[in-house]
Design a protein around this nucleic acid. Structure first.
Lengths: 341, 341
DNA sequence: GTGAAAGCGCTAACAG
DNA sequence: CTGTTAGCGCTTTCAC
């Protein structure tokens, strides 16, 4: 049925000749309505094309059944995978998700957080663009449950679901070392992020454990992006004494790295071994195929929602839970080469 | 300030010793409030940690400043790009977006549409999973503006922003023909979707224009996914008389196709030319590099929001606008080979 | 079983 | 300039 203004519960009540209370009972599947009455109401609803207003409902019930998801880079395939995990669980529990993208901008992130608070979301899962920011104050003040995913949040006590980045990087670099490499470079991400810092730490730890002195020329840095990886690799390629192996801190950077390799005359394989953090689509199309550190992305998302949901449900406050998931080293071909043999 | 229940406009009014109307004026940046008063109110807001409830506001104003975005596959990199375009424009106009993923399920899509209607979104941009479905009835009934992106919607008159799929496929296949190929296969997407159908139509048209008879063995079909492309390519590879060129209808399918090529002994290059619809990350990592049909994804999104916004703003109804954007053929290496020379 | 009525927090006349 | 007041559409006691 078409009509100018959307029908309300009032209209339905009038049409079915009952009170709005009864209509409310029906649309909320509450018992205690005679079957005939219910049928009459259901009929009126259909005829009028009535849709219950979630806005009014939220107003009354003080819950929106919406959770916000904030990610820093929708173009990074890692996040869609994680988001799927969250969504899947959320749907099961009757929650809907609002996904927003900050493009790594703390300013945008702050705006989005405020927006979500205004909109009254029941909780937020966030991979922040600024781990030290003050933008979370409002969430704490308003008592909105938050789960930090993949990147921790300082100065605020939220639940966290992180990856053991140190271990992941450590395993990768260790592998490189055990294959005989000693000239191992790292393409670092931003060191003001947990993943950036920790992956670097894992690299350092591996070197230390195997008594390999740090060559500062082999530590290059960039943003978590293709461009970042490209520039870093290029600078590495211009070194007089090039490394024999490279560890890349991020999937996008790995792609940039591969492109740089193509553009310079530096060849993967004999000349250069490689392991990257996070699996990527191109990994099996390069020659040799890329070895990578892989993360359980779906699980990450599922777990994050579970923690969030527990907090939304519970009235009591309890101290933050911190989960650390273990990544897995997937060996393909790019680290088979032992240079010095 | 922490407090148990969130402060309301009432609390602020009391705290600043004014009426709620005045507070409302201030938080809405309306003129006509003495500066001292305003300061007092601003102060109270800060002290109380007050946040305006968008729920209550929406209830009163009958607008939510939210638009819904519905996409069928968040893992397909095409969509994040499009979504970025939408978001960018939306943010400029003060709208926020709710992104939902149907995973190509019409059932989920229907649920999401209902959810968005209940939530009172001001408009919807959708790439539907079911072009013939009835799920749009409710949108029409409620008078909610809709823009169909990338896939048209039958039986309902919504604005559309589409790609000229026929032309894109036509150009690609024509190119293959002009290089000397006559045994050209197509990996089709689902023929109950516009893109699937139209790309097939473009293929047929090119064959017809150049008097190449259709070989039905060269027409294989699958879902718009890696698996779909993989299976299709495999079946092609088992033909006694294999094609000398393949046109793939979708980015994910192209990836599957490449994987299948690796797994069979069928080699891109001398043996086989290739062009795929949509550019992909791996395109420059295969040997030879892949030629592709590329689409202006960002523009697609931007345009979609613009159309939507015009409708949201306007009170009058006007007949649907249909945009058709032109894709571009990017020639790399995978179609240089002319078999019969 | 069903209805009447009181708000949820806000905006927007309308008064003063 | 500022305050009073009437809803927006719904859920939820509390009566009957």
């Amino acid at each position: 049925m078409k009509s100018d203004s959307k029908p309300t519960i009032q209209d339905v009540a009038k049409h079915a000749d009952v009170s709005i209370a009864t209509v409310s009972r029906v649309i909320n599947n509450q018992s205690g309505v005679r079957e005939v009455t219910e049928k009459r109401i259901l009929n009126a609803i259909k005829e009028l094309g009535y849709v219950r207003s979630a806005v009014a409902r939220s107003m009354k019930k003080k819950e929106t059944k919406m959770i916000g998801i904030i990610i820093p880079d929708i173009s990074n395939p890692f996040f869609p995978k994680v988001v799927s995990g969250i969504e899947q669980q959320a749907r099961k529990k009757g929650y809907y998700t609002m996904l927003s993208n900050t493009s790594e901008s703390p300013i945008v992130e702050k705006e989005i957080i405020n927006m979500l608070v205004e909109r009254g979301v029941d909780g937020i899962v966030i991979t922040t663009a600024d781990e030290n920011g003050e933008q979370f104050q409002i969430l704490q003040d308003q008592g909105i449950p938050v789960v930090a995913l993949d990147r921790s949040i300082n100065q605020f006590e939220f639940d966290t679901v992180l990856i053991d980045n140190i271990d992941g990087a450590y395993q990768a670099v260790k592998r490189l070392i055990l294959q005989g490499h000693r000239e191992i470079a790292i393409i670092c991400g931003p060191l003001n992020t947990t993943p950036g810092r920790d992956r670097y730490a894992g690299y350092m730890k591996a070197l230390a454990d195997y008594d390999i002195p740090l060559n500062e020329e082999f530590v290059v840095q960039g943003s978590f992006s293709e461009e970042g990886g490209y520039a870093a690799t290029l600078s590495l390629s211009q070194l007089d004494a090039k490394p024999t192996a490279v560890f890349s801190s991020n999937n996008l950077m790995s792609i940039g790295c591969m492109k740089a390799l193509q553009d310079s005359e530096w060849e993967l394989g004999e000349e250069l071994a490689f392991i990257g953090f996070d699996d990527i689509e191109i990994a099996t199309f390069t020659k040799p195929k890329l070895s990578v550190v892989s993360r359980p992305m779906n699980t990450l998302g599922e777990l994050a929602f579970q923690l969030l949901h527990e907090r939304i449900q519970s009235n009591e406050t309890f101290s933050p839970r911190n989960y650390l998931l273990t990544p897995e080293l997937i060996i393909r071909e790019s680290c088979r080469v032992a240079k010095d043999d």
